[in-house]
């Protein structure tokens, strides 16, 4: 700490960032909390309704619960693809004799593509008529009977809108896990191998415990990002058909900007924030406890 600092100098450095952060993040949180207690369409006068919005959301809104269930499904698919995929691919790339950098770079490529481009791409991958990439592959390997319009079939649409999000960021999490795995001391692995440890034992008892702190961070990252996932489902299906791919985020967006029900939309967005906080709390408690 600088001893020559003055109160003014602290304020000079601290105020500008706090103002921008306050205007963009803190104030909107407070405003959402307030708005969630009102009924307002943006034009007529605001009407205080107390906790009525919350009551309606939790007790009387089937679409909300449908969207919540879909969000959990979306989260599960994203986590399996991103974290499971990342762990497997990172382990494999680590075992490569050469070309690791190239493999990592190529695998990371989808992370720099915009969601609009990804949504367009997957629209054509899932296309049924004319048959898109996926349906052609199925036909090619003799599974033509499984061909389906993935985005308009209510039983496949949730998986279909979740998979692109999983695909997009697997590379990012792979990179983080790869770096953690590469930092496991070679002596430990060598010693275990001489001990006759199988690949699985080596992974389970040496590598995984070693990367545990990074793993927790990665799980938190992937979970909070999946919970706020919006672009791809919004662009691909806009929640449809019906509500079969509606997420809390798309539901909130439509409530706000299509039905202009600002009060109720704020209630849903407050719920999304609480959901993220609860998820982070749960992950920290569960993973740390197993750790101890």
């Amino acid at each position: 700490m600088l001893t020559h600092r003055s109160r003014t100098s602290v304020l000079v450095f601290l105020l500008p960032p706090l103002v921008v952060y306050g205007v963009a993040v803190l104030l909107p949180i407070v405003q959402s909390l307030v708005l969630s207690l009102f009924s307002w369409d943006g034009i007529t006068a605001m009407q205080f309704v107390g906790v009525e919005n919350y009551a309606r959301m939790l007790a009387g809104d089937a679409v909300f619960w449908r969207a919540f269930a879909n969000t959990l499904g979306y989260l599960t698919i994203c986590l399996v693809l991103q974290l499971g995929g990342a762990l497997v691919v990172a382990s494999l790339i680590l075992a490569l004799p050469t070309g690791r950098e190239l493999a990592k770079t190529l695998f990371l490529l989808p992370a720099v593509i915009s969601t609009v481009a990804i949504a367009f791409l997957f629209q054509h991958i899932y296309s049924f008529d004319p048959p898109g990439l996926l349906n052609q592959v199925l036909d090619l390997v003799g599974l033509g009977g499984l061909q389906t319009p993935w985005l308009s079939d209510v039983s496949t649409v949730l998986v279909a809108v979740s998979a692109p999000e999983g695909w997009r960021f697997t590379g990012l999490y792979m990179l983080i896990i790869y770096a953690a795995l590469a930092a496991v001391p070679k002596e430990l692995e060598e010693a275990a191998r001489l001990d006759g440890a199988s690949w699985w034992q080596l992974f389970r008892q040496i590598r995984f415990p070693y990367i545990q702190p990074v793993w927790i961070t990665t799980v938190i990252m992937a979970t909070t990002y999946a919970l706020r996932g919006f672009d791809i489902p919004y662009l691909l299906t806009n929640g449809g058909p019906g509500q079969s791919s509606e997420l809390l985020t798309t539901y909130m967006y439509k409530t706000a900007f299509t039905s202009t029900d600002f009060g109720y939309a704020s209630t849903v967005s407050v719920f999304i924030v609480i959901e993220c906080l609860v998820a982070v709390g749960l992950i920290t408690v569960l993973l740390r406890r197993r750790d101890a």
Binding site: L2, R5, V25, C276
Partner: peptide, 30 residues
């Protein structure tokens, strides 16, 4: 520089990492 309440301010910034952007859409629009 450091100051007395730096821990609190740090925590307030920390919160922003897990806040989903959707919370800001309606208030900022207004």
């Amino acid at each position: 520089l450091g100051f007395r309440l730096s821990g609190v301010v740090r925590a307030v910034f920390l919160l922003g990492i897990i806040v989903p952007v959707q919370i800001a859409l309606v208030p900022l629009f207004i």
